[in-house]
Design a protein around this nucleic acid. Structure first.
Lengths: 187, 187
DNA sequence: TTAATTTTTTGATAAATGTCAAAGGATAGG
DNA sequence: CCTATCCTTTGACATTTATCAAAAAATTAA
């Protein structure tokens, strides 16, 4: 839990009271590799913070497994669209490594937002930073070549290369695993 | 201004006081086609709401004009990444039609956020819905064909087809104008 | 309206990436 | 340590999309 609360404080200062309220609303769990945090077709009722470990968000498009997002320790995992819209979504979230996570439910978070202006602010900032991250990935996908995208991933998150199977990384980058394998052979 | 305030109220209820504060902080303008709202290389200090008209966000990648976003009446325009991170960004925003806009500065918005919990909530919701929109476009770019993307645009925002030059729409969809022209001829 | 400019289409060709198939490697459980 | 499974690479070929060039169509300004 400490890693989680420290990360929150980094985003925006929180009073002792708010931190306590947060920690009361949050439950910590140790889960094994392969555990499904969120199942496609359901409404995502939890946001997870990865204190240790690794997860990926994925769905099926035309029968093919698409890796939408990868969350390592220190970041959040969820079916964000479903969490926000309160509609079922096609995304699953699974653990790629045994992980220690903090989970907070939609209902509890709403309560915290309503009770604490400072937590509402924190939430706004978190979503804002998420938007910036997504825009960066969007820009890559928009007009960068497969090789450019791979290079950028190597520069920004090199550790993922050894922790995530190549096929999932390829899909994350929007290419096939054969193409990624060839890029890798060339570079 | 009324269109803007009504749109805000739709997102989240606001007290009379908050609405008044908002309208005091907002300035309304009529601007002509071609007007540059935001210039590349600067920090984006305003968020614009388009009451009437049309804008696009664009930048240059390898000397080529890339249309990043298109905002029609009832939506927001900004260099969102720059507005959030307070860093200069490569994006420009220009008007594609004579437009009536409402502008609110970063500093004023921060003040509103600090003074009104209800406005902070509104801000969180606005960013959240923006995130959902971007995720939808991201999904298309991730693993949908050029034709699928065009079809989806036709279904969701058909009016843009007649208001925005084909080259900009093509770029918005992540393809060349020749490819879009051929898709159009085929469909 | 004409003339100039911009936008869109079309054709030929090239480049990037995908698909299918199969062979090697690596890894984990019995 | 052996076998089954999963992961990665490689090859041959197909498809999609980009590039370059030029013509046709539409729009704008004089």
């Amino acid at each position: 839990m400490k890693v989680f609360l420290d990360a929150l404080k980094q985003i925006s200062p929180l009073s002792e009271k708010a931190i306590e309220a947060f920690s009361e609303m949050t439950k910590e769990e140790e889960l094994s590799k392969g555990h499904l945090l969120i199942k496609a077709g359901t409404v995502c009722n939890y946001i997870y913070f990865i204190e240790a470990g690794l997860s990926r968000t994925f769905y099926y498009k035309d029968g093919k497994d698409v890796t939408d997002w990868i969350s390592a320790e220190g970041s959040f995992a969820a079916s964000v669209v479903s969490f926000i819209t309160r509609q079922p979504d096609i995304r699953n979230v699974e653990l790629l490594e045994p992980s220690r996570i903090c989970a907070i439910s939609y209902a509890n978070l709403e309560k915290l937002y309503a009770d604490y202006h400072e937590i509402e602010r924190l939430g706004r900032l978190l979503v804002s930073y998420g938007l910036v991250q997504l825009q960066n990935r969007f820009d890559d996908l928009h007009f960068a070549s497969a090789q450019e995208r791979y290079m950028k991933l190597m520069n920004t998150q090199p550790s993922l290369i050894n922790r995530v199977p190549l096929g999932m990384i390829a899909s994350y980058l929007g290419i096939t695993q054969e193409t990624l394998s060839r890029i890798r052979a060339k570079v």
